[in-house]
């Protein structure tokens, strides 16, 4: 059951985007029942009481769905537990006396805003470049008019489960965003609704992605870091669709 442990924290502190940062060390006593973020909450409470500025770290839903949280914990995106976001990580995973190094997600296109908070808005730019199905409000036909094979719907869901946390980029030695981008593409390409714009979307999203991120070498680290265990197969689908998009006579196949 629960026990009290003491952990030695080494946390990246950086005042602002233009400032240089460094690691600071802290120790924190905590029960193993607590979540990792609650441990940081407590640390921050103590810092505040001592007149020191709290560590900036973001979180919102704290149930692993919004994708706001996310830091590197001992060199692993979202920490040691598989398929778990930072907010769902509990101190049970650590033992008394452990050193825990906490750093922001690193990639040139995820600039640090402060301490552990980074700007992941390039993901929004990737979506903006084509991560949608163009249907104006009110223009939709009855939902059951287009049957979707259950398998396709399930696969679309598997891909759509991505929470946009950025762990894949953080974990990738190349800072590539293939897993994120391919998940969104696969979500839409699996559904009949996504077909008309399929090739156009693949092209623009991949090319926007490449304006910000590195080139994939198929290491597979992203999948290991991904709290939603998004499948590497989607990356292969994206690569294939991209080449098809370039080669296809879209007008004749009735697609953009």
């Amino acid at each position: 059951m629960s026990e009290i442990i003491t952990v030695n924290l080494k946390i990246w502190r950086q005042e602002g985007p233009e400032k240089s940062g460094c690691f600071e060390e802290y120790t924190q006593k905590i029960t193993t029942e607590a979540s990792f973020l609650e441990m940081i909450d407590l640390l921050n409470e103590d810092l505040n009481n001592q007149g020191l500025e709290p560590v900036a770290i973001e979180s919102d839903c704290r149930e692993g769905i919004c994708g706001t949280c996310g830091v590197m914990i001992n060199g692993q995106a979202h920490g040691p537990r598989k398929a778990t976001t930072t907010c769902q990580l509990h101190m049970r995973e650590f033992s008394d006396g452990d050193e825990i190094v906490i750093e922001p997600f690193r990639a040139i296109s995820f600039p640090v805003i402060r301490d552990l908070v980074v700007d992941r808005s390039p993901f929004d730019q990737i979506i903006e470049s084509g991560g949608y199905i163009s249907v104006n409000t009110g223009a939709a036909s009855d939902a059951n008019l287009t049957p979707v094979p259950k398998e396709a719907a399930d696969q679309a869901f598997d891909a759509a489960a991505c929470i946009g946390c950025g762990a894949c980029v953080a974990a990738c030695p190349n800072s590539a965003a293939q897993l994120f981008t391919s998940a969104k593409l696969a979500h839409m390409a699996s559904l009949p609704q996504g077909q008309p714009e399929r090739w156009k979307r693949t092209e623009t999203m991949v090319e926007t992605m490449e304006e910000f991120f590195g080139s994939c070498t198929n290491h597979g680290e992203c999948h290991e870091a991904c709290p939603k265990e998004i499948n590497l197969d989607f990356i292969a689908f994206m690569n294939r669709d991209y080449m098809k998009a370039k080669v296809k006579n879209r007008a004749l196949s009735g697609q953009r």
């Binding site: 080494k10 950086q14 001992n74 190094v101 750093e103 690193r106 040139i108 296109s109 800072s175 590195g214």
Partner: peptide, 25 residues
Amino acid sequence: SRKSSLNASFQSGEKKYEGGREYIA
């Protein structure tokens, strides 16, 4: 990839983390 991994405040050629990088996959 190297350019994408440079981080203004944390440069060292390859992308590295202070907490070590335990490769899994």
